[in-house]
Amino acid sequence: MSALIDLFSVAAIGAGLFFFFAGTVGLLRFPDSLTRLHALSKADNLGLGLVVLGLIPRAENPLAALKLLVVWALVLLSGASTAQLIGRALRRGRK
């Protein structure tokens, strides 16, 4: 059973790392701010979500697991809002 849980954690965290890697590559390689923003928000939302998913079975107690989920939710909220704010500021700057 614990081997299965380990396997699940490794798979989820590995997938999360892949999204972080892809997001970082996008941040460095994409041509303009809007596309870079797009790459970054994927890394934050999906990458961190998968890492949290992989860590939940390893949490000491249900409260710690809940805290992990809250951390992810807060990053989702702030990531989505700041991406909106930066995107709108960019559009205003272009006009």
């Binding site: 809250v70 807060l74 909220l77 989505a80 909106q84 704010l85």
Partner: peptide, 15 residues
Amino acid sequence: PDGAMILLAQFLAPV
């Protein structure tokens, strides 16, 4: 301010 900023403050501040 933008709607996104207001939404962020409304959700984030209580938490």
